[in-house]
Design a binder for these strands. Structure first.
Lengths: 250, 250
DNA sequence: CGTACGTTTGATCTTTCTCAATAATGGTGG
DNA sequence: CCACCATTATTGAGAAAGATCAAACGTACG
């Protein structure tokens, strides 16, 4: 069976890149009951404070996690791309501590919470790999704390662009030396703890310095090495499987 | 058996606050092979890039997670308190993406990685509750991204003080309206993305406004409600068990 | 009792924010 | 296909939060 036909195909490919599943475990994941939904940009997948009953996987499009402060400032916490499980958080926590919203139009597959819980707890291979995915998300959050806490605006923007590039490429959603940035400059600002005005100026500066090229939202990096340096970026925190070698080779 | 006698006693009490374990699972955790170590402030529990072979539980004292940028700036990612498991991250990830260092002198109990892995994967109740703990850590990280990304200095400091107060009190390590802050102002700065000079000024301002009182590192908050407001603090993200009620009652 | 570390204070400088206005851009109904 | 509208992007000028630099002051501890 071609996993691309299945709504969870991209998710499963990512899972198995991290840990190869026994046939019956893969089968069990593919046989999970699910309901697909088409969603517009801006629609909520999870609301802060809600009690989730499903666990969604992003089939197509982009989404983002988000929290709003008492003063109404928004902080974006992560960007989900096609193939990401969105609510691993909520499998075993009863109240959502943050919101998830679609960034673009897209498709999600909702899986009943209990069904996934059961697979995680009774099938060691599935448990292991989903824990791994959860831990990688936490690793990315740690890097975001560093990004927002200890890097200046230029480094922050360069860093987040590098992260996108690597994550999209790993998923096969971008090729070579460029990608389509799925967010506005305002959203980029909310992800980096800056204002949209400043993001705009930094993007122009990066462009002026030849670190990126832009046509609308399309970003290219003619000098990938230089962009990584500008963003103090190292892919280690992404825990991309099989890339310890790459890191060692550089 | 009095869990206080056992090195993992505090950890286990915290675990069971989240999810009550069957007797044999509790037994299995207590029977885990472990080696205790006494450590000085500053000693490393985990180094970035290392391949961990043990999973440590903090028995006594404080520790902190940390990452250093290319420019040498340090960002503290979380503070571990007695009873915290330190390397849940590293159970299923092979290379550590950050360092963990003792904040004070203290004691840790090292558990072989494989032994804990096995318990998590074969005993659903243990798997469930350790996943919960991992997810709560991720929730705290999200709040830290917000803190550092979208709050001003005064809010950041007030917020982290509130977080300490609640976490320490929950563990029975602080009582009523005060606690001993286990870190220097410089470390507080590294946790909040500020400079130590500015942290000092903000602390004085909070004191001048009657939000905190200080004697050395001892912090008191005569007006707990006001301190929470100043820090835009809500305990929801800490997922303290049984406190949905409290939140609802306020 | 001196040394090292942590805290406090002042003066100045930078980065980034704020406010405000203008220009592109994409989508929509006629 | 075109005019119009709502977003989004861009630019400028001034303000502010926080950083930096430098020095003095406490306090614990060997």
């Amino acid at each position: 069976m071609d996993p691309h036909q299945h709504p969870l195909g991209r998710f499963l490919r990512d899972v198995e890149r991290h840990y190869r599943l026994p046939d019956d475990d893969r089968r069990a994941l593919l046989d999970l009951p699910l309901r697909q939904r088409q969603l517009d940009a801006g629609s909520y997948l999870v609301r802060e404070g809600s009690v989730p009953s499903v666990c969604s996987v992003l089939v197509e499009g982009f989404a983002y996690r988000q929290k709003v402060t008492g003063e109404g400032a928004r902080q974006i916490l992560s960007v989900c791309i096609a193939g990401d499980a969105i609510d691993l958080q909520n499998i075993f926590l009863d109240i959502s501590d943050h919101a998830v919203q679609m960034l673009t139009r897209g498709t999600v597959a909702d899986v009943p919470r209990e069904a996934l819980q059961e697979l995680v707890l009774t099938r060691p291979a599935i448990g292991r790999v989903l824990i791994q995915l959860t831990l990688i998300e936490a690793s990315i959050l740690r890097e975001w704390v560093v990004n927002v806490g200890r890097r200046d605006a230029r480094e922050r923007i360069a860093h987040i662009l590098c992260e996108f590039a690597v994550r999209l490429e790993t998923r096969g959603l971008a090729s070579g030396d460029g990608f389509e940035l799925p967010m506005t400059q305002e959203q980029l600002a909310d992800a980096t703890g800056l204002t949209s005005v400043h993001v705009n100026r930094v993007l122009k500066a990066l462009e002026a310095d030849g670190l990126i090229e832009r046509r609308r939202r399309h970003i290219q990096y003619p000098n990938w090495r230089a962009l990584q340096d500008a963003g103090d970026f190292s892919r280690r925190y992404l825990h991309v499987p099989g890339e310890d070698l790459i890191e060692a080779a550089i």
